[in-house]
Design a protein around this nucleic acid. Sequence first.
DNA 1: GCTCATGTTCCCCT
DNA 2: CAGGGGAACATGAG
Length: 251
Amino acid sequence: MPELPDVEGFRREARKAAGRRIDRVEAVDATLLRGGRPDAVEGERFGDPLRHGKWLIFPAGGVEVLMHFGMTGRLDWAPRRSERHRHDRIVFVCRGGELRYRNMRKFGGVWISRQNRERITGPLGPDATELEGERFRDLVAGRRGTLKLTLMDQSLIAGLGNLMVDEIAWRARVDPRRKVSELSRRRIDRLGEAMGEVVRESLPTGRVPPAEGWLTGARDARDAKCPRCGTKLRRATVAGRTTVWCPREQR
DNA sequence: GCTCATGTTCCCCT
DNA sequence: CAGGGGAACATGAG
């Protein structure tokens, strides 16, 4: 699930823990605590959570709790007494509730670290919410790979995932297999605008909306059709990921 | 039993 | 060196 809008939703959930004292950290599945030790945050208070791309950054005392959600992670604030989910792997038990990091497939994890954020996250480009037309063009133009690979590259633009990239390419009517270097400046600008729209419209929902008028709302149907023109959508692996596009409109 | 999965990393090949 | 393909990670869901 987790791409930029999903993680933004988790950040809103995390805000419910902001300012609260962390009584203890329960590493229900210790393998998901990828770095650092619980005692570095126990007794401290959570600050205000931030997000960069698909990373959630939660300051606490003098350290940061970094979370990545892989493909099946999520974050919930819940009453301490309420029943936990079987895939809640790391739980921050606070005054007045607990923050539960859930992750079924165990990709991603939780790090408790000092100042070496980038060593853990790897290089991240500007967040996709902070990228306007000209900067987008400058970043993307001159890249050698396909559109799909380029937009998925977190070190170039942080936050876009498989669903969002397909959605953006569909809105801009560009074949995701095209090499970026072959795209006109005009088409790159169109992609930048599509990215802004997809990001803005996804944020309030906390996910890429699987709604009418969205590729994401159509792509999983048995005989998936383009929401604009009704053509049967094409599905293939591009840059290692399942990719869906309209063969008629996207060139 | 089989296929596929919204992410990332690593290895191998051209 | 750049870029692509495939596998691996772990655990289901359909």
